[in-house]
């Protein structure tokens, strides 16, 4: 099968859906002739024109509200927020409006929109362009939150998100944009709420999100050399969450390491740990549930400090080894 990048997979999903469904349009800052800050929408303006690729002023709140309103009357807007840090400005419209309108109106409305945004550190972009804030949105009933790791997942999950009749926060990772993988040319969807076992193993379950899935897979390779056989589970969507796949994996291995880039306190790892502890997997645990996540600091500019702010492959290897050897 042909290989394309994660970025191209996202662009392809949007392009194919816009060709199929006229109610889909893009709205965001400099997504038109500029092509988006990361060039995700490059070339789409030329194909679809200014009527369907809507360049907005710098107005995260305004554009998120505009997408919400248009979705209310049946459009399927895809809003781009240039950096996840800027979703703080959009969050009122997402959290108080898009997520609640259906419920608040007794089921008489729906908000079929997607809000795409790149999260994550590793680009030297410092405090205001590096955060992973997904769990803020996971906390809100009415929203769905998706975090693809591979190009294949990115395309299938984005197509499913656009066709979903609810507001979906689609969290991309900047460092994944240039990663390559096999992606079918035809359109396909991956249902939201279906985890994927990215690697099978028997000694330890690693549940990881976004780029930490890639790093966990690398770590698993290292650990395999030591005879430690790791299973890596990628939830792919955080809300809804496929608890079944996670619980089954933990029952099999008896040990679990949770890895994400977002700050540990209040991060999604706490939710995962809670789900596991409350489940039948609890009786199978042979070691404490362990979380490895972002440190309790803003993302620093300095490259060395930045790398030490979030889990790296070596940290995952070390922590996994400790759990397997019951040193935690």
């Amino acid at each position: 099968m042909r290989e394309i990048t994660y970025l191209e997979a996202i662009r392809e999903a949007m392009t194919q859906e816009m060709e199929r469904d006229e109610s889909v349009f893009l709205i965001g800052e400099d997504i038109g002739t500029y092509g988006g800050a990361f060039q995700v929408t490059h070339g789409m303006y030329e194909q679809f024109g200014p009527e369907r690729i809507l360049d907005t002023p710098i107005t995260e709140l305004g554009l998120t509200g505009a997408a919400t309103g248009a979705a209310l009357i049946g459009m399927r807007p895809i809003a781009e927020i240039m950096f996840m840090d800027f979703t703080t400005l959009a969050s009122e419209q997402l959290v108080n409006q898009a997520a609640k309108l259906r419920f608040m109106f007794g089921g008489k409305a729906s908000v079929p929109m997607v809000l795409r945004t790149p999260a994550g550190s590793g680009t030297g972009a410092a405090e205001h362009h590096s955060q992973s804030l997904e769990n803020w949105f996971v906390h809100v009933p009415g929203l769905k939150v998706v975090m693809p790791t591979t190009p294949y997942d990115a395309k299938g999950l984005l197509l499913a998100s656009i066709r979903d009749n609810n507001p979906v926060v689609f969290v991309e990772h900047k460092l994944l944009y240039k990663t390559k993988g096999e992606v079918p040319e035809e359109d396909y969807t991956i249902p939201l709420g279906q985890a994927d076992v990215k690697r099978s193993g028997t000694d330890l379950t690693i549940v990881a999100t976004s780029i930490m899935v890639s790093r966990s897979l690398e770590a698993a390779e290292e650990l395999a050399k030591e005879g430690i056989n790791v299973e890596v589970v990628d939830p792919r969507s955080l809300r809804p969450l496929d608890t079944g796949t996670i619980v089954e994996s933990v029952k099999k291995t008896g040990k679990v390491l949770i890895v994400h880039e977002a700050v540990k306190t209040g991060g999604f790892g706490g939710e995962l740990a809670g789900v596991i502890a409350e489940s039948e997997a609890f009786g199978y645990l042979e070691a404490p549930i362990v979380r490895l996540a972002g440190r309790e600091i803003p993302i620093p500019y300095n490259r060395t400090l930045e790398q030490n702010a979030v889990p790296q492959v070596a940290n995952i290897v070390e922590k996994a080894r400790d759990i397997v050897q019951l040193k935690v």
Binding site: G65, A67, G69, A71, I73
Partner: peptide, 17 residues
């Protein structure tokens, strides 16, 4: 004030259609 951007969106949808 939070419904004002949504109003813009309703109008945007009508303009689009």
């Amino acid at each position: 004030g939070a419904h004002l951007p949504i109003a813009a969106g309703l109008a945007l949808g009508d303009q689009y259609e």
